[in-house]
Design a protein around this nucleic acid. Structure first.
Lengths: 274, 274
DNA sequence: AACTCTGTTTCGCACAACGAAACAGAACCG
DNA sequence: CGGTTCTGTTTCGTTGTGCGAAACAGAGTT
């Protein structure tokens, strides 16, 4: 086995701050692949059905390029064409890929029973999330027996700055990565950044002092949640969270007892060796 | 709005019979995008973690090309690099795409309560599937109250020829599409094709006579299931199925009463206007 | 009939992607 | 230790693919 200068890109810097990334001069980077995937990702930014024009506007790609990409993606089964509306939408090809990812996450399988037990004991829903660019994505979510209103499905995206999941992740990454993340978030939030940063700074303090982060009504006014990072053996950092409506789990109870239990749980899961 | 000769590829002919598709000469087809996606799909064929060499072998692409593709995909967050094993695996980027697809399927949302009710009444698990190349993929699955052993997750792939889902789909498509599908299946199964075709022929007869298809222990020895197609308004064809261990739901009860109810359910769902 | 909105197609060029071959390390091995 | 065999990376000259401005083509709209 060899690795002279390590082909794998040193750090994942592809934060999407709205506009697509423009790597300037990299012989190894395959531009048209990147563009094609940008076309697919255009469908995750809200709209479910897009014409070539829409895609061109969202991605910033020229029209003929979009035309070729949608043609190719349709032929491969990643997009489908709606002849009535004359627009495209995602097709089943992307689902196969997404499933291949989650179904092979060992941590997900192993953590599931622990998460169930925790959900049962605390009556909160327990989620496991990973980062994708500037979001946290659920890879698992277990509900308490009396199924709460919170039905977070696998794949759902949460913002990074205002949720317990995002904050736990933010606290756990290296200083260098965090600086990059700060830049990307600042770009995304513009003049709202100072406010968001305040929440993240608070999270860092919480995390250093107690080992967990909180989001008390800061993402959804009625939801309190706590989050802790989980370090996988391959270096991946995920976040374990528990959430409930604030009238069921008030802030002080979350802070004083439950969040600490969550941190213990994270430790247990890590020590399973995933 | 314009469509002179219809840019959208006439028919989705991208059946993967093992080896990647080789379109010969199509100015609109972006080869490198197709190749990059082939690299991603390599991870859905069993292995969860692959080196460049493995990918080259699976996809048939030359080594330097694979190197560039993995480099690009890693940089974009669709693959992650495991430094210990010096191999790649899928990353969270693909999950965001897959979720965008399922979460926007109206039929899924609308059918869910009906499927729950059917599961409760019949004590079978009820699935909604769509086709991806030579497989059917779950886009929704609802279990009966006393959660059976069958836990089919969204995204899971079923073979097309031996399952009730696949057969229902097979019966519902046009003759021309079916002929193409036959060719692809023949290529996939080789000398086993006559046997598989027998099952599909039987399904066609069942479907014409009764409006449903069956798979009685033909996919999993211990599982009986029935399937019916669902036609969406945009022309998409999906399949609705119900399944249970054969000792709980014997073949005759499935054939004589439940399958017919399933066909009725499919009609109800179609008439919701999805 | 002129205008606008779509999306497709053309076509010549540039340069991005290609891939054979060379290189580079690691592990193993007698 | 030199040789062998894995791995994956890099080089580099060539080619042909992907590019995109501009032209074209329909369908509504006024």
């Amino acid at each position: 086995m060899a690795r002279t200068k390590n082909n794998a890109p040193e750090l994942m810097v592809a934060f999407d701050a709205g506009e697509p990334v423009k790597p300037e001069k990299d012989r190894k980077f395959v531009e048209s692949l990147s563009r094609g995937l940008d076309v697919l990702r255009a469908f995750t930014q809200g709209s479910v059905i897009l014409g070539n024009q829409d895609i061109a506007r969202i991605t910033g790609l020229p029209k003929p390029t979009v035309s070729r990409m949608t043609y190719t993606l349709t032929k491969l089964g990643y997009l489908s064409y709606n002849t009535q509306l004359e627009k495209y939408q995602l097709s089943s090809g992307v689902l196969a890929l997404g499933y291949a990812y989650v179904s092979n996450l060992k941590v997900r399988q192993l953590a599931k029973p622990y998460m169930d037990e925790f959900a049962r004991q605390t009556n909160m829903s327990v989620g496991l999330t990973c980062r994708d660019r500037l979001h946290m994505i659920y890879v698992e979510n277990r509900l308490p027996p009396e199924a709460s209103l919170l039905r977070m499905e696998i794949g759902l995206k949460l913002p990074l700055a205002t949720t317990a999941a995002g904050r736990a992740y933010y606290c756990a990454i290296g200083d260098q990565d965090r600086a990059l993340l700060d830049d990307a978030l600042a770009l995304k939030y513009g003049e709202d950044w100072p406010e968001k940063r305040q929440g993240l700074t608070q999270a860092m303090e919480d995390y250093r002092a107690h080992g967990f982060c909180l989001s008390l009504g800061e993402w959804d006014r009625n939801i309190n949640s706590a989050g802790v990072p989980i370090h996988l053996q391959d270096g991946t950092i995920m976040a374990l969270t528990c959430s409930a409506p604030s009238y069921l789990v008030p802030a002080d109870r979350l802070r004083d007892t439950i969040a600490h239990q969550l941190a213990m749980l994270a430790g247990d899961i890590e020590s399973l060796g995933v």
